[in-house]
Design a protein around this nucleic acid. Structure first.
Lengths: 172, 172
DNA sequence: ACCTGAACACCGTTCAAGT
DNA sequence: ACCTGAACACCGTTCAAGT
């Protein structure tokens, strides 16, 4: 059932992912969904876990850039994926794995940094998908030629700043 | 009218900020709002600009940490402020000012870095407000003692990583 | 110029009742 | 155990009509 929700999300986007529409998709009455999930929010949390499912488990010898890209790609693999993860982050059942993977890649750096990297990735992916949606709707007020150009540039610049191997960090 | 929306947002939160409720607040029929704004999304974009209004204009001699903190504080000043800015970022009328201020503080560093910092701040503030809301509702599944403890630690760690003055950057 | 009244096509959620 | 039917209290948006 989270599979159907995931597929519907990718097809219609988060604003149009309603319980009623999902029920129609499953050829069931809307109220039937509430036997399986207590609320839409819990349903979305399960969907968020599915989205982050593909990020590999924590490993010590992986570069930060690789882990960060894997998380970003997982978020971008479904329409509005980043926003779904973000909106259900409070009850992080599956976000922990992603953060553990980042922590492992950062090695002995302060733990707060892993959280900061995760927040950057989520912010980046959410804004990117936001722009994609805005462009598909049409109305670009000042009309930059391509909203997703410079995509990787910004992401790479961010990850480079976070990576302890790409710069000498100050001792204190 | 954006003032009333801003006040209502802060009182009831984004999920309960409806056009009908705002109309009631203004003692007007819901349809009256559509003479002033073509849609709820445009109304929210105007609210987002108001939220970022207080961040100071770009200045060359300001430390990154100061600008970043000013933007974060502006986002946190109203309930769900970060999410509002994020959801209307595509039509960035007021987000440009914030990004220009970051660019100025970063000096001659690559421009993509300013965007990355802004994305980090937005991600950080959104997740923080998400946790605040989840905690007020009650249900903390694994119950970390205080969801906002380590607030500044994560933020500071992120900004320190971005600040060219806090670490020697590699030449390439 | 600015607002009302009424309608249209939707929401999430609950709950008795069915099988 | 799993679903239906019907209801409750809402949404955003449009549009003729009023002043």
């Amino acid at each position: 059932m989270t599979t159907a929700a995931l597929e519907l999300l990718d097809r219609v986007g988060l604003p149009d992912l309603s319980m009623r529409r999902l029920a129609t998709e499953l050829e069931v009455q809307p109220s039937a969904l509430y036997w399986h999930f207590p609320s839409k929010q819990v349903l979305l949390a399960a969907v968020a876990d599915r989205i982050l499912e593909t990020v590999p488990d924590a490993a010590a010898d992986v570069r930060l850039a690789a882990v960060a890209a894997a998380i970003r790609d997982a978020l971008l693999a479904y329409r509005d994926g980043a926003e779904v993860v973000m909106s259900t982050y409070a009850m992080r059942l599956g976000a922990r794995r992603a953060q553990d993977a980042l922590q492992a890649a950062l090695g002995d750096a302060e733990p707060a940094l892993a959280d900061a990297v995760f927040e950057f990735i989520l912010g980046h992916a959410t804004l990117l998908q936001q722009r994609m949606h805005a462009q598909s709707v049409g109305a670009a007020p000042d009309a930059g030629p391509d909203p997703t150009s410079g995509l990787d540039e910004v992401f790479d610049a961010g990850i480079r700043a976070f990576d302890p191997l790409s710069a000498a960090r100050r001792p204190a």
